[in-house]
């Protein structure tokens, strides 16, 4: 007994050794950058010639740009755009995925070729988002193929859809939906197949219809997977960048209650405008916005961990 314990402790140092590279790399490339971003959000950068001079801003970046008039509320607008874009793709995505998952796991009406459907519906997810964004840009451009078709059908005016605030907003939400519903469907099918079949057998003995089974067995038991899907999608959605950036750079404007809002500029796109080299570069401002995004992401993940804790 004593000998055995000694042995475990002896080998234990290898455990520390084996996990050490992970933590060293994490500290250098993720933890320090996060701390530095927080630090930088309390600093001003002023340039004199080629030398950057850093001065203490205190809460200056927050009071000016996040809550003050110097930022014009752009960070909240960008967050609102990001969240609505996410909702607009996630709600239809989860509903369609649930419906398809129910169809593919319905033993009364077994559909043939389930594997082929999964492969095809998942495909847009694996293609480079940048390529997809430029593809849709080319299709919906003033001279694009789909745009020309829409004009012929009388669905769109001659003017560009890319510059139209609302049209491009919906197209981006559609692209996200189109890229992700196959992924969500596969996850949900796996979740439904993981439910104990004897529950369905018992329900069938009791004469429950497949609709009743779906709402009274499948949905409640699928709750943890639905929550997981929602939170990972929300966190991914908050970082949305590639599609709107390459589709139309977030440029078109819509009027919301008198204010002009860039209708497809997400929060990560906004942060990047202050990182790009040039006269607009402002690391303090970019950092303050990053901290806001971090806090929102943190709240979303904490909700998730709380939900999974309840399950356990």
């Amino acid at each position: 007994m004593n000998n055995n314990k000694k042995k475990t402790v002896e080998y234990g140092k290898y455990g520390v050794l084996f996990i050490a590279p992970f933590f060293i790399v994490f500290l250098i490339f993720q933890f320090y950058p996060l701390l530095y971003t927080f630090y930088k959000s309390f600093m001003y950068d002023s340039k004199t010639g080629r030398n950057k001079v850093e001065t203490l801003a205190g809460l200056g970046n927050y009071t000016n740009y996040v809550f003050g008039s110097a930022g014009g509320g752009e960070v909240w607008q960008a967050i609102a755009v990001t969240v609505v874009l996410w909702l607009l793709n996630f709600i239809p995505q989860i509903l369609l995925s649930l419906l398809l998952a129910a169809w593919f796991t319905d033993n009364f009406n077994k559909l043939k070729g389930e594997g082929a459907y999964k492969v095809i519906m998942y495909m847009p997810n694996i293609i480079t988002a940048a390529t997809i964004a430029v593809l849709f840009y080319s299709l919906f451009d003033v001279n694009g193929s789909i745009k020309s078709l829409f004009v012929k059908l009388g669905w769109a005016p001659e003017t560009g859809m890319l510059d139209h605030g609302l049209a491009s907003f919906f197209i981006i939400a559609f692209i996200q939906f189109w890229m992700w519903y196959g992924n969500t469907m596969i996850v949900l099918i796996a979740g439904i197949l993981g439910i104990n079949p004897s529950l369905y057998e018992a329900a069938m003995v009791d004469g429950a219809t497949s609709t009743q089974q779906f709402f009274q067995i499948t949905i409640p038991l699928l709750k943890p997977i639905l929550q997981f899907t929602m939170v990972t999608s929300a966190i991914g959605g908050l970082q949305m960048y590639d599609i709107p950036q390459l589709f139309n750079e977030g440029n078109p404007v819509i009027k919301v209650g008198g204010a002009s809002v860039m209708s497809t500029r997400t929060i990560v796109m906004l942060i990047k405008t202050y990182i790009n080299a040039g006269p607009g570069q402002n690391y303090g401002r970019a950092s303050a916005y990053s901290v806001i995004l971090f806090i929102i992401t943190l709240i979303v993940s904490m909700v998730f961990y709380k939900l999974t804790d309840e399950k356990n």
């Binding site: 234990g12 520390v16 993720q30 530095y36 990053s290």
Partner: peptide, 26 residues
């Protein structure tokens, strides 16, 4: 392996899964 701090290390890795790299780009 079993070692001191193992559970903490695992809990830590689990907790940081959700942190996106985009927020610390600066």
């Amino acid at each position: 392996y079993n070692f001191k701090g193992k559970n903490f290390a695992w809990g830590f890795i689990y907790a940081i899964m959700m942190i996106p790299t985009q927020v610390s780009i600066v």
